[in-house]
């Protein structure tokens, strides 16, 4: 088994997948903590469907690099949904659901109307659940992912104190002069970037799982913001590593396996939380 693993890891494409998987898991878990606490867990779901719709449009238009279209559209939607916050006319969760279902339907419709390959349902399945083979990442994608991930982690650490303050109590932060709107837009942009990146790995349906599970698990066991954030990041990296290894060793789809591991971890954390009387 170990032999098999080592042999596989010698292949560059497998290494790429590993690097990308771990980095995305790390970034999405950091943001997950904010999203869960801001009661915006659904936004990951909503935005990933937007990204799916944008990808479909990119495919129809015939763009070689769909990131060019997907990223700006997703960022725009993220800002609209997150940054406008509680003042919007349409209630937050309803507008997320609307945009989410709408983008999904339009994307699917486009893919059927203008099929770019003979296997439409296969394509759709890949975009929704991620590639069944993790050996599809190009080197440029890996480099882009590494750069963006490092950027996200650095920015998160740099703005950690402000992120905490704004997430904990927006009106207090506003009252003492913290630039809350700028902070929210900043968070929205980072989230959009992560989601577009993560879609390559786990597909748009499972992105939100990657975002919320580690945060929820960690919140069961830990009680300070710092410890929740750190544990959430560690747990997410561990779970996706395990998921990746499993999908290398056995014929199981990557995205779904990672999420299954995340769910298992969540159940364990829930039990630990109950036993230690913290849940």
């Amino acid at each position: 088994m170990l032999d098999k693993f080592v042999t596989y890891m010698a292949i560059p494409l497998v290494r790429y997948a590993f690097i990308v998987g771990v980095l995305i898991a790390l970034c999405s878990s950091l943001l997950g903590v904010i999203l869960v606490l801001k009661r915006f867990s659904y936004i990951g779901d909503g935005l990933s469907h937007v990204a799916f719709g944008a990808m479909a449009i990119a495919a129809v238009v015939g763009l070689a690099d769909d990131m060019v279209l997907t990223l700006p559209i997703t960022i725009l939607c993220a800002i609209l949904l997150l940054a406008t916050g509680s003042n919007t006319k349409i209630k937050g969760d309803a507008s997320i659901a609307m945009i989410s279902v709408g983008a999904l339907a339009v994307g699917y419709l486009l893919m059927n109307l203008f099929p770019t390959s003979s296997n439409v349902s296969g394509d759709v399945c890949t975009t929704l659940f991620g590639s069944t083979s993790i050996l599809t990442l190009k080197k440029e994608e890996v480099v882009l992912c590494v750069v963006l991930s490092i950027l996200v982690v650095v920015l998160f650490i740099a703005f950690y104190n402000r992120i905490f303050a704004v997430t904990f109590d927006e009106s207090f932060s506003k009252a003492v002069g913290t630039k809350v709107n700028a902070c929210n837009i900043f968070i929205a942009v980072i989230i959009a970037v992560i989601i577009v990146l993560a879609m390559n790995l786990v597909g748009s349906l499972l992105v939100s799982a990657l975002i919320i599970f580690p945060a929820l698990s960690s919140m069961r066991v830990f009680r300070s913001f710092l410890s929740v954030t750190i544990f959430s990041a560690l747990l997410s990296v561990a779970c996706s590593s395990l998921g990746l290894i499993l999908s290398i060793l056995y014929p199981v789809p990557v995205g779904a396996t990672i999420v299954a591991v995340d769910i298992t971890a969540f159940i364990i954390c829930m039990i630990v939380g109950k036993v230690t009387g913290r849940g």
């Binding site: 606490l37 905490f164 830990f222 300070s224 913001f225 710092l226 410890s227």
Partner: peptide, 12 residues
């Protein structure tokens, strides 16, 4: 409402 189940230490 957010504060009701927010994991944060008193010091934080």
């Amino acid at each position: 409402i957010v504060q009701k189940d927010f994991p944060a230490s008193v010091y934080e």
